[in-house]
Design a binder for these strands. Structure first.
Lengths: 250, 250
DNA sequence: CGGCCAATTGATTAAACTCAATCTGCGTGG
DNA sequence: CCACGCAGATTGAGTTTAATCAATTGGCCG
């Protein structure tokens, strides 16, 4: 198992992935859990490939992913795309919406998606009424920062095969927190084009780097999933630091 | 002047850079301003080059930069470094400190620094008592995200000269919000080694890319400062999007 | 004057990109 | 049922960008 995080007992009766995720970090009261679950009762389906947040547009609602994966990305005027991060179940898009704030990135469904849309004013309500919950969201924010920071490290200071391995390990750890891994298999719903736009590489070079990890025997690739055959080797070669995703250690 | 932000009247009697920064976004009451200023009365000096936050260490205090520049960075086991972002006066390091949270990046003084150290519990107090102030800090958080997102775009999808120009424009806009630019001159207190670690390049290639901007006449480089001679050309070639730093437009 | 740090330049090597074909699996219409 | 089209994956070949290695220069300070 990837981190000590899993030794911390989860929130009881956790139904939504957000409650499960926060439960790994902080001990919420039953009232807080119920409030948080109650927030997420308005569920919207988003078709695979569809944008549900568009850069520059005014944000109307805070979105909490219930099922499926999304990407946050920025499109450049020359047509190139940089995917900033993957949003998994329990992740929040638009947590920090302010008066007339405009989205500074787009978000799209990587797989068919179920999202809860929440009135941003109810988020402010949380910080006034539920201090534990508020600190849970604050932790979630700090974790998003750490994830984006690791993305910057990948893009700035790792080689192509390192970037790939590093990303796989990140996803493995994040999915493990949701109990969403089957041993060493993890879902990989993105195409190689999307992978390339995540890692700042060309499609061709992404393909070749993936091949090199396969040929070393470190990963097994299936359509829509990969298996991490040698986690130690992957961690060492990609310089992955698991503390960045479990900064609540001890 | 870079953005429409400057047309919004600043907070009256703004003394600390944080109040000046937030004043550009939200209209705080006199009481809120005084509370925020009062928070920042414990000032610490940090010598140039010194780390004041170390990755992995437990964070004891929230730091608000009063004077000087800092860097947030991650050091890899192989000795390479990725600078994530620059912290300017008014920026906050450790806004989202939680119970026994450990820093997931280091921070060091790029210049001699004055920082206010704040008890993190007083941050929680803000969100409970001062809703406008809380939304201001939330905006500040969203802005930090946008800055780090732009950093990922630079690292992932821009060429070396584009990365340089893009970073200069970011700093120009951020300094303008603090009224800290002298026309088109901006401070550049970092060495080329630090610039290279910011942009994900080698020192030599950074030097050559800087030379190419100079030779095109777009920038003038002095020690510790540069002048943006042709902002339009820089914006076009680097695909810079000023909205990311002024997402409160209209 | 010497030492040191930062900046600059030259030459070579390595990594990653681009262009151009295939190849493969899958669904669909004839 | 099969040919066709299409999207995604794979491979080859040549080019470009950036890294590395190696000096050299410039400024500043003791």
């Amino acid at each position: 198992m990837p981190t000590e995080a899993l030794d911390i007992p989860s929130a009881p009766n956790a139904q939504t992935p957000l409650v499960r995720k926060l439960g790994a970090m902080c001990l919420m009261s039953q009232e807080e859990i119920e409030f948080l679950e109650g927030l997420q009762n308005h569920i919207v389906d988003v078709k695979k490939g569809r944008d549900f947040v568009e850069e520059g547009e005014e944000l109307r609602a805070t979105c909490v992913i219930q099922e499926g994966w999304a990407i946050r990305y920025i499109l450049l005027p020359n047509g190139r795309r940089q995917i900033l991060s993957y949003a998994l179940p329990g992740d929040i898009i638009g947590l920090h919406i302010n008066f007339r704030a405009h989205a500074n990135y787009s978000a799209a469904a990587l797989t068919p998606l179920k999202v809860a849309t929440v009135d941003p004013r109810r988020i402010l309500e949380i910080s006034q009424k539920f201090p534990i919950l508020a600190s849970g969201l604050s932790w979630s924010t700090a974790r998003e920062f750490a994830i984006l920071g690791d993305q910057a490290v990948r893009l700035g200071r790792l080689s192509a095969p390192q970037r790939l391995a590093h990303l796989m390990l990140e996803l493995w750890h994040r999915l493990a927190l949701l109990d969403d891994t089957d041993g060493r298999w993890i879902a990989m719903p993105m195409t190689q084009t999307e992978l390339a736009d995540t890692l700042g590489l060309s499609l061709v070079h992404t393909n070749r780097s993936l091949k090199s990890l396969r040929e070393k025997g470190w990963v097994t690739v299936e359509s829509d999933a990969i298996r991490l055959n040698d986690v130690d080797a992957l961690m060492e070669m990609s310089l992955f630091n698991p503390d960045h995703l479990a900064n609540f250690s001890i």
